[in-house]
Amino acid sequence: MSPESTAPRGGPTARAASPASDDLTALYRRFGPAVHRRALSLTRDAEEALDVTQDTFLAYMKVRGTPRDEASPFTVLYQIATYRAVDRVRRRARWSGSLGPLSVEDEDAEDRRQEAATSHTGGLERVEALQDLALLTQGEDEDVLTVAVLYFVEGHTTEEVAQVLDMSRKTVSRMLARFAERAQKRSLRLSPGATP
C-alpha cells in the first residue's frame, strides 16, 4: 500500500472497524481470559468454555447502554459467564443431594470458616454440588445465581462475594437469604423425604 492510499489497512477486502467493534476488542483483551477461566472452571469442558466466553461478550454488548450497564464491566461479564456456564451444567445435571444445607452464616461463623477447609473444594464433590445448585437456580437472575455459586459451592464469605461482584455485604446477605428460602422448597421437590 502506497503512503497516499486511502484504502483501509489489511488489504482491499478489509472493512474499517466500528467504534463498537473496537470497544469489544478492548473488552475482550482486558476481560476475556478471566471470563474464559470462569467458564472453564464451571463447565469443565474446553469447547463449552470457549462457546460460553464468546456468548458472554456478545450478550454484554447487548446490555450496554441499559440500566444493567451501570455495574462495572467485570461484574456484568462475570455474572453473565457464570449464568451461561451454569446453564450448560444444568442441562446435564441430575440431583445428587451433595450440596448440603443452604444456610447463610453470620460474620463470626464466616471468620471461623475462613481458617478451616471449606466444603466443596474437592473435584467430584464440587462438581456434584454445582450440579445440584444448577438445578436449584433455574429461573434465577444472573446476579442471584452468581452470588449463590460463589457462596454455596465455592466457599467464599459474604465479604469476598461482595468484593468480587462490587456489591455491599448487606446486599449479598439479603440475596443469599432470599435465595436459600426459595431453594430449600425446590430441593424438597427434587429429593422427596430428604432433609434440606
Binding site: 472497524a17 469489544l24 476475556g32 481470559p33 474464559h36 477461566r37 464468546q54
Partner: peptide, 26 residues
Amino acid sequence: ELRADSAAFLVQHPPGPLVARYEAAE
C-alpha cells in the same frame, strides 16, 4: 500463573473471530 495463562489465551484465541461474529450480526 494467571497472568501467563491470560497471555497464552489471547495468543490462542485472539479477538478477531468474536469481533467478526459480532459484526456479522450488526
